[in-house]
Design a protein around this nucleic acid. Sequence first.
DNA 1: TGGATAACTGAACGGGCGTTCAGATAAAAG
DNA 2: CTTTTATCTGAACGCCCGTTCAGTTATCCA
Lengths: 176, 176
Amino acid sequence: MRLFARHGFAAVSMRQIATEVGVQAGALYNYTPDKQSLLFDLMREHMDALLDAWQQEDPGGTDARARLEAFTRFHIRFNTRRADAVFVSYMELRNLTGENFAAVTELRRIYETRLEEILRAGQDAGVFTLAEPRITAMAVIALLTGVNTWYRDAGRLKLDEVETLYWDMVRRLVGG
Amino acid sequence: MRLFARHGFAAVSMRQIATEVGVQAGALYNYTPDKQSLLFDLMREHMDALLDAWQQEDPGGTDARARLEAFTRFHIRFNTRRADAVFVSYMELRNLTGENFAAVTELRRIYETRLEEILRAGQDAGVFTLAEPRITAMAVIALLTGVNTWYRDAGRLKLDEVETLYWDMVRRLVGG
DNA sequence: TGGATAACTGAACGGGCGTTCAGATAAAAG
DNA sequence: CTTTTATCTGAACGCCCGTTCAGTTATCCA
């Protein structure tokens, strides 16, 4: 994943990957049928981990504001700790074959829907004001994922502080 | 640019590019010293065009709200019409050599600063409420660029409507 | 300990890569 | 029309690619 994130899928050879893990290229084929499957497995595992982790952290219940705050903090925390996987899962979609692409895209759609449902619930409860729940969901995800472009562990702001800043923005964005 | 966006820089060969424009691979070297320079030139031209276009559209003046709305609408319009260039300019940064990377990154920084200055002006004028102008600028840009992931010309919403939806979100985001 | 199974090596395969360049061709200039 | 200049072709260079596989080495189980 690190190699793919750093150089791009097409630019990384099976020989480089093999060197990284201390074997010859041929040995990799005991673990993956081909290079494309290796990429797909990495991406699917990342998306599965994302969905599972959110299922663990979602407080559920009827307090849409609390759930949205939890989502905001969760997304930032999860994605900054797996920057390589996030980058690859977004950028190398084009290197997947038709059905592999569809599978990963579907998992992404499900994740977006998790957020969308929180927004709809909040809207129904009268705590959020928003015109288009689906679009707002994608807007919020784009906003939050953007943290990855600048956040560094050694930077001025602790992750906690970043989460709070972004929660402020998200809260206002949804009219809550 | 289309080929790079669709398949990735490393996955596109000089022979493919040559075929696309109707010559043999060798002829390309009358126009670029090497493949890397070709990528760099495309990216730098895109960033230059972005900065120039905003300079044309920036209403200037002291009305920070009007300038921010203009920025929001401009960014969405410009980026959706050049989706390939936006994608490549973000994603293929890693394929640039040190100094080429620095040059493109600097142009991006300048663009972010244009927005940051609008936010600071609005903050000083008391029309915006935000804790971190720089971070808010990057958050807004990430939010707006996210339109590219889902917007299609043939979709349900006209670009005008999308601009209005996002301007609503941005306005609330900055406490305006 | 011995036999089976899993893991790995090292070489090979056909093929595509970026780039170069002598020679052919087209366009421009005088 | 002739000469000069700009473009382009087509072949070649050395190199690296993903993948396969016979043979070797390590691990596991009875």
